[in-house]
Design a binder for these strands. Sequence first.
RNA 1: GCCCCCAUAGUCUAGCGGCCCAGGACGCCACCCUUUCAAGGUGGAGAUCGCGGGUUCGAAUCCCGCUGGGGGCACCA
Length: 506
Amino acid sequence: MTLTPILARMSADMSVRVRYAPSPTGEPHVGNIRTALFNWLFARHEGGAFIVRLEDTDQARYEEGAERAIFESLAWLGLDYDEGPDPSDISRDIGDRGPYVQSRRRDTYRRHADQLIEAGHAYRCYCPAERLDQVRKDLQRRKLPPKYDRHCRDLPDPPGAEQRLESEGLPCVVRFRTPLSGQTAFHDLIRGDIMFQNDTLDDFVLMKSDGFPVYHLASVVDDRLMGISHVLRGDEWLSSTPRHVLLYQAFDWEPPAFAHLPMILGPDRSKLSKRHGDTAVLEFRERGFLPEALLNFLGLLGWSLDDRTEIIDRETFVRSFGLERVLANPAVFNFDKLTWMNGVYIRELAEEALADRISPVLESRLGTSVDRGLLRRVVPLIRERIKLLTEAVEMAGFFFVEGELDYGEETLLGKKFAGDPGAAAHALEAVLGRVSALQPWEHGALEGAIRPLAEELDLKTGALFGLIRVAVTGSTAAPPLFETMAVLGRERSLERLRSALRRLGP
RNA sequence: GCCCCCAUAGUCUAGCGGCCCAGGACGCCACCCUUUCAAGGUGGAGAUCGCGGGUUCGAAUCCCGCUGGGGGCACCA
């Protein structure tokens, strides 16, 4: 009876707890969400908890609506979390180790900063920004590392000096008193043992003058208070990890396990960012990517199942994922491969399911409502022809629009009838004559009626079919002709053939 | 400038001392299928495993150096 809570606590302490800690400074991009994915996979594989924490301690960089984009990106990819802000109301929490929004934890950070000051691990710094800039510039000009010169580290001794400065209204920051010598080492689950000389570090800021903490303090305090067992984050954090380890030591806390994930690079091999184009997660949704395809692709950036498996579903990922197979080297985001993979997923989707995905895309792009029955018949014609949902617009939009199609005479005539509109008109008339009263109006009958016509007109089948194709679809690339005409229906097909004829003039 | 990380084809990767004069995938090329476009099938080009030293009977695999690339060095995260 007394054992139960102890055992429960022990297993809770030993269980895996990981977090995704984005800051609401914009829409999450794919590199960022890959970190979320690996955290999620690790948590799910280990049967641990996946926690989301909003790191909104930079008022200047805050962007309106960023939280919504974060939650939407996670939801779109199906990365559910166990603890974090309530997406429907950020002022509320899911889970009992919150708040999960750092701006609501300010007194916690203040308390911990004070604690460090009292213990002699931190101090107040009154240097104005201009002085810091000056110092930094000087050092850079002298080709020296741009570090804070520790001007306030040991301020004039008279007791009360600090208070005096404060009462004079001087703003101050709190800095960490970094050891001047020695080294700080830690183990990275992906890279092994890493060591830094303390004298290469400087007295970094813990609390800003606006009362907000800086990342280093906030994340360490939160990771500790939230019971984070493993910190899986991007490689760009590797060089600030010694600072974090030093903080854990100053607090006399056991640090979590660290694993620095390889970064995702743009085509120019620099860290992926907005300037590489459309890298925002939700932008991929706009462009017609399937979340399961993006997830599959991202899961394979820096991790692999074996030497040949490319298509991996969510369950297999969860079952197989492990840090042992995470690579240390960065990966360039290969857009072509993602697009190919998206095509694979589209083809694997059941027709009904694919119709569900395509319908809203068509409706928003075409600006009309899409008839479900018609769409259901169109899907089998295009599913092997599109790699992106948005391609359904070009490939099959003509099924859903009324009125004249938008194409020019040059397209209609193509190479085969170039300069000879008379012959094209003649062929179209022949087709109309042959097909107007055709019974039944279906694929086989249409082909049976039109194919022989080519020979009768002394035309290549390709030439005749091509002409009809443009007339009926408005494009030279479309689904198979007779199926298309069958689905489009007699009236609309004939109408479009007549329209093409009219364009060729008398 | 200093610190740290990384290094197999254009790209993503397999490889953890002999099975590899290196396997898979995207992309590319050719052919087949074919009414266009795709999808599919077959075949192909493409890597002196960044370079140089070691260790070892034997190295893509271990060690060292170099070079190259990336990241960090804010009152940003």
